[in-house]
Design a protein around this nucleic acid. Sequence first.
DNA 1: CGCTCATTTGAAACGAATCAACAATCGTGG
DNA 2: CCACGATTGTTGATTCGTTTCAAATGAGCG
Lengths: 215, 215
Amino acid sequence: MERGDRLFRTGDVLSSIFVVRDGGFKTVVLRENGEEQVLGFHLPGDLVGLDAVGLGNHRCDAVALTSTNVCEIRFEDLAGAFADLPSLHKQLLRLIGQHSNRDQDHMAILVRPQANERIALFLLNVAGRYRLALFPVHAFKLPMSRGDIARYMGLASETVSRGFSRLQDDGVIALQGRVVTILNAGALGRLAQHEEMIEPPRHNERRVACIHGAV
Amino acid sequence: MERGDRLFRTGDVLSSIFVVRDGGFKTVVLRENGEEQVLGFHLPGDLVGLDAVGLGNHRCDAVALTSTNVCEIRFEDLAGAFADLPSLHKQLLRLIGQHSNRDQDHMAILVRPQANERIALFLLNVAGRYRLALFPVHAFKLPMSRGDIARYMGLASETVSRGFSRLQDDGVIALQGRVVTILNAGALGRLAQHEEMIEPPRHNERRVACIHGAV
DNA sequence: CGCTCATTTGAAACGAATCAACAATCGTGG
DNA sequence: CCACGATTGTTGATTCGTTTCAAATGAGCG
C-alpha cells in the first residue's frame, strides 16, 4: 500500500484484521467540525482493525503513513476456527486487552497538563514499541508527521515542534527530520513525570545529530 | 458497598464482572508519582471489571463513589457457558466493544485544548448515559467530586469549578452542589464544538437553580 | 454545634494556541 | 541531475487561557 491509502474506512463491516509488517498506519476519526483526531499509530508488529470487533463495523479510518506491507487475517476464517480451538478465544481476548492497554497509554499522555510531559511520554512509548518489535535500536524513524503527532496528543503542531527542539537543545534526543535518537533515556523518563532536569545540558548550543553511524 | 470501598484492586485476578445497579464507581490507576488518574465512571447500568478480560488481571482499582448496589457475574460461570452457547461470545465481544467506545469518548474529551469544551462534552456524555439507563431526566446528581472530574479530564479542579460556574452564569445549566440541570442542551452542544455562544444569556446575574420540582 | 472536607472565587505567573514568516524537505517533471 | 512547487517543519511575537497559590465560603457528618 502507498502513503495515504486506506486499509478500511469508518462504517466498513469487519472483514479482516491486519498485522503491520513494514511501514506504519494511523487510525483517525473525523469530527463533525471537519477536524481529524488521531486515535492511534500502528507500527510494525501491531494489529489494525480490532476496533470493529465489538460492533462489527469499523469506527475509524486506517490510513497508511508510508509505503506499507500488511498481513491480512480474514475474520471469517478466524470465526470458523473459534469453534475448533477454544484457546483461540483467549488469544483474541488477549489481543483486545493489549489494544485496550494502548488506549490507556494514550490517555496517560493526554491527561498530562504540560506539553513537554506529553512529548516525553510519547517518545518513550514509541521507543518502547520499536524495542519490542525490532532489535533494540537507539535511533528510529517516525513514520508520522508532526501534525499527526499533534493531533494524537491534543496539541498544536508548533508546540510539538518546539518540544522536540527543546529536547534536542537539552541533549536528551537528537533529531534529523523524522529520525529520532534517544541520547538520555533517564532524563526523558524524568521529564515524563514532571520532574525537573537534574543534569543540565553540557553545552548550550544546539549540537548536530551524531548518531554514530546508526542512521 | 459504601463510599470508598473497592470492588477490586490493580493486580487482582479476574473473578467477576459487575453491573452497577445503584450509585456509582470510578476506576483509577495510581501513577508512580502518587497521582491518581481517573479512567472512567460507572453509573447505573454500566459494567465494571471488563478491564481484566484481556490479561486476566485487573489493571485499575474500582472505587465506590457513594453507597452502591452491584450485581455480580462470576466469570467462571460465564466461561463455562461459552462452551455451550457460542452466541455468548459475540455478546461478550459486543460488551467489550462498548467499553472501548467509552474510552474513545473519553479521549475525545481529553484531546480538546479548551477546558470549556471538555466540560461541555463531559456533561453531555453523562446526561446521555443517564438518559439511556433511567427515564429521561433533566436533572441528575453527579456521584463524583469536582476533583474526580478534574482527574478524569486532565484539568485542575479549580478549572472544573470555574467552568461549571461559567455555564451557570450563562444560563446553560443550573447547579445545586452536585445536582446538575441542563437548561439549554443546544448551547451545550455548540460549546462542545468550539462554537461561540450564539444566544446570549438572558440575565447576567446568576440565577438560583429552578429545577421545577424534579429534584 | 463544631469539625473537616469540598467547593468556590480571586490574583498572579506561566504555558500553549494562534498568527505569521521563514527554512527545509520531498516528490515531480523538465 | 537539477529546478521547481508543494508540503512539512521550525521559529518568533502576541494573546488568551489554565495552573497555581491563597483565602473564603459552603456542605456534610459526627
